[in-house]
């Protein structure tokens, strides 16, 4: 641990390996939520964990593994408790992020006068980026490693700035 870490450093709460598909993702999210509940984690932090984790996993399913449905695609997830927050590490063996850059810096625009023009997609990465702190993605030996942190208490100013 670097400075600012707790005396004990991060504590692994649960490690899961699951199929990279809608059923696997839903089951993993429910398992994580039950674990965090048993650990006495606040409802707010559990909700933020579910929201961010869902988007991170959906992105792996829909993009990293988009053309590899035959290889038993899977996701490895570590959830740790750290400084009152939650540290997430996701690993997959899907394709690399195009351009090596994280997308979703801004939310899609919503035209308030015409619902028929509202975007139906493009929300996933912006949702993840506004929930997560210290988000990083790296690639090592054909594996994508996505890490991020959910702070114990949300920082509403930062969320709002990012959402605008």
């Amino acid at each position: 641990m670097t400075s600012g870490g707790g005396i004990l450093g991060p504590r692994l709460l649960i490690s899961l390996h699951f199929p990279a598909g809608p059923d696997g993702v839903r089951h993993a999210l429910l398992t994580v939520d039950a674990t965090l509940h048993a650990e006495g984690i606040s409802d707010d932090l559990r909700d933020r964990t579910q929201i961010a984790l869902a988007e991170a996993c959906n992105n792996i399913v829909e993009h990293a593994y988009c053309d590899r449905q035959g290889d038993n695609p899977s996701i490895t997830l570590d959830v740790a408790s750290d400084r009152g927050g939650i540290q997430i590490t996701l690993r997959d063996k899907g394709g690399p992020m195009p351009n090596g850059q994280l997308p979703g810096a801004v939310f899609p625009q919503i035209a308030d006068d015409d619902p028929l023009l509202w975007p139906e997609g493009g929300f996933g990465w912006p949702i993840l980026r506004s929930m997560a702190r210290a988000l990083s993605m790296s690639r090592c030996h054909g594996q994508n490693i996505l890490r991020f942190r959910l702070p114990g208490v949300d920082d509403p100013l930062q969320s709002r700035q990012k959402a605008m």
Partner: peptide, 30 residues
């Protein structure tokens, strides 16, 4: 959003009973 569009311009879709995590997603995305 897709089912909102399905109703067309003449009909409204309104939301009710948002639970905390749902409300958070609605607020974040504006």
């Amino acid at each position: 959003i897709a089912v909102r569009k399905l109703l067309g311009s003449e009909r409204q879709l309104e939301l009710a009973g948002l639970q905390p995590a749902v409300n958070k997603v609605m607020t974040l995305t504006r």
